[in-house]
Computed example of a mutant assay.
Amino acid sequence: MSMLQFTVPPLPHYMLCGPSFYAPGGRHVSRRNVGVFDLLVVREGCLYMGEEDRTFEVGEGCALILRPDSYHYGTKGCDVHTSYYWLHFQTTGSWSVTDDELPRHGVEPYDEKRTQALWSYATHTFQIQVPQFARLLHPGKVDELIGQLIQLNQSFYSGSAKWNQQALFQDVLRQLSASMAKEESTPAAACADLAAAYMRKHYRESVTAQELGDRLNFHPVYIARCMQRIYGCTPMEYLLHHRIEQAKLMLLQTDHTVARIAEEVGFNQAAYFTSCFTRAEGISPRKYRQRFSYG
Rank of each mutant, 00 (worst) to 15 (best):
Q170L: 13
F218P: 01
Q228M: 13
L168C: 03
Y231N: 05
Q154C: 01
P139D: 08
E237V: 09
H202N: 11
L136G: 03
A122T: 02
A181Q: 14
M180T: 15
A122F: 04
S155N: 12
T125M: 08
M227I: 07
A195H: 04
S185K: 11
A209Q: 15
R215A: 11
W163K: 12
D193M: 11
T208K: 06
T208N: 10
H241P: 00
E144M: 12
A190R: 15
F169Q: 01
G159Q: 11
L173D: 05
A209I: 02
P131R: 06
Q129A: 05
I150V: 14
A117H: 10
N217L: 11
E205D: 14
E144I: 04
E183C: 07
R204A: 13
N153A: 03
F126Q: 07
S158A: 10
L145H: 02
L176Y: 05
H242L: 08
R204Q: 15
R114H: 07
V207G: 02
V207E: 09
T125K: 11
P131L: 06
G232F: 07
M236G: 03
A181M: 11
R229N: 12
T208Q: 08
V221E: 12
L145K: 00
A117M: 14
A197V: 03
E237D: 13
L176M: 15
H241R: 14
G232Y: 07
T186M: 08
Q228Y: 10
D193Y: 00
N217E: 12
P220S: 07
T125A: 06
K113H: 11
K141A: 13
K113I: 11
E205C: 07
Y231F: 15
T115L: 12
Y198V: 02
T115D: 13
A196F: 05
S177C: 09
L118D: 00
G147E: 08
Y231G: 02
G147I: 07
C191D: 02
F169N: 00
T123H: 06
E184C: 04
M227G: 05
S155T: 10
A167R: 14
M227R: 06
Y198D: 09
R229M: 11
H124R: 11
L168G: 02
A224V: 02
A167Y: 08
N153K: 11
Q154I: 00
F133D: 01
I128R: 10
C191A: 13
I230Y: 04
A117I: 00
C226F: 07
P220D: 09
K141R: 15
A134D: 00
G147H: 14
S177D: 12
G140L: 06
P187C: 09
S158D: 14
Q151Y: 06
